[in-house]
């Protein structure tokens, strides 16, 4: 058995060459844990260890909880945190969105609803704007694919921690809310 598993030195090469090129691998099957040998009788009756465990959990019992009460207490997030979305505006204060549906297409949660309409004729170089642009924040998973998909840099994520509301309707952010967000 062991003779089969240890690599044989090739007959055609000298011993030194073989030693350099193929160091004998350590077989995993040989590293057997032999723990039972080393355990003293104190360990084996196990009770002191149980007591030690109980003391550890008791120590945790008296420490301060790490919980924060979420809707009332807000976590401090870094500036690079990506939370709620907003729709951006260009230099003239017009929204950049052209209702191309790329964000809605990319969204894995299907939380973006867009309905397009023709842009006002005086908006130069723009054909299409969203009449309806809604994000259902309950469905949103904040993956940021919409931001990546947007060809116009019209949607981005703020570092606002997702809000909590009492009704489902309040979680649906419409165009105006997203523009002001």
């Amino acid at each position: 058995m062991s003779a089969d598993m240890t690599p044989q030195t090739p007959q055609t090469e000298t011993a030194t060459e073989a030693a350099i090129e193929t160091p004998a691998p350590r077989l995993l099957t040989r590293t057997v844990l032999k723990t039972s040998q080393k355990m003293s009788w104190v360990t084996r009756i196990y009770l002191p260890m149980l007591l030690k465990g109980l003391m550890i959990s008791l120590r945790e019992f008296f420490r301060k909880p790490v919980t924060f009460n979420y809707p009332e207490q807000r976590p401090k997030v870094s500036e690079r945190f990506r939370g709620e979305h907003r729709l951006t505006k260009d230099d003239e204060g017009k929204m950049k969105c052209v209702a191309c549906y790329m964000c809605a297409t990319a969204c894995p949660a299907h939380c973006i609803t867009i309905e397009a309409e023709a842009a006002p004729p005086e908006w130069d170089g723009r054909d299409k704007i969203p009449r309806v642009f809604e994000i259902d924040m309950l469905k949103c998973i904040y993956c940021g694919y919409c931001v990546e998909a947007c060809p116009k840099e019209a949607i981005e994520m703020t570092n606002k921690v997702p809000q909590v509301y009492q009704t489902r309707q309040e979680f649906i952010y419409d165009r105006e809310k997203l523009l002001a967000n």
Binding site: V98, A99, C100, M102, R126, D127, K128, P151, K152
Partner: peptide, 9 residues
């Protein structure tokens, strides 16, 4: 290259 606004896209 206005594919986002183009219906043919």
């Amino acid at each position: 290259l206005d594919c986002p606004e183009c219906d043919q896209a």
